[in-house]
Design a protein around this nucleic acid. Structure first.
Lengths: 101, 101
DNA sequence: TTGACATATAGATATATATCTATATATTGA
DNA sequence: TCAATATATAGATATATATCTATATGTCAA
């Protein structure tokens, strides 16, 4: 028996909560905005754009990758990150003022 | 000078992060879903619907009210909570499968 | 004012997350 | 292989959040 379309089952609630908590951090939110706006970026581009330490950027990026929010691909010496979870994109866009659903 | 429409300024980022972290908890997410679906509810209705202790419900509710996510009104012996932040409603609905923007 | 019911809070403990910085690892070109 | 550059991780400490349960407070009707 399918759960109702307008509610989340227990597992989906857990997953959604993890995702929301994960993006509920100022630095991670800014990283996601950057990736949403400009597409995939390497670690250096991200840490320079946000004015944060390289290690800090890397920590947040790998945390988000571990949670399934981002994916990464290595191209030579660079690692490019991008948003992998469509819900994240939707949520970010919903938060912006211009998205008055 | 206005910030670009598609990015958040520092203060907005902080606020959004607080909001997302706040709703990024299984119980709070379920409370918000309930309120989004069925409208305002009192504490007893919420704790019974979710099968959680009254004190637990009250704690999460007042936490969300403190963060500006919910508002409450007392009617006699009952206190009714409802969603006060439109972004929360949008985010919740974006997470549901039927909201494929 | 007292009892019954609804809601809120205190206070202790456990767990998770953040933060910082040094250093390790990976990749490539010389 | 070595140097240069990009990225990742370790490990310590600080801070925040969660969890639990007893008890306090608020409201109303009798």
């Amino acid at each position: 028996m399918q759960p109702r379309n307008d509610e989340l089952n227990a597992e989906a609630v857990q997953q959604a909560a993890v995702m929301l908590r994960c993006i509920g951090h100022p630095i991670r939110l800014q990283i996601i905005e950057l990736l949403d706006r400009d597409g995939e970026q390497n670690v250096t581009a991200i840490h320079e754009a946000l004015g944060i330490e390289q290690a800090v950027a890397s920590q947040h990026l790998s945390l988000m990758r571990d949670k399934g929010i981002l994916n990464s691909r290595r191209e030579g010496v660079n690692v490019y990150y991008s948003i992998s979870d469509a819900r994240v994109t939707r949520v970010i866009e919903c938060i912006h003022d211009h998205c008055q659903m």
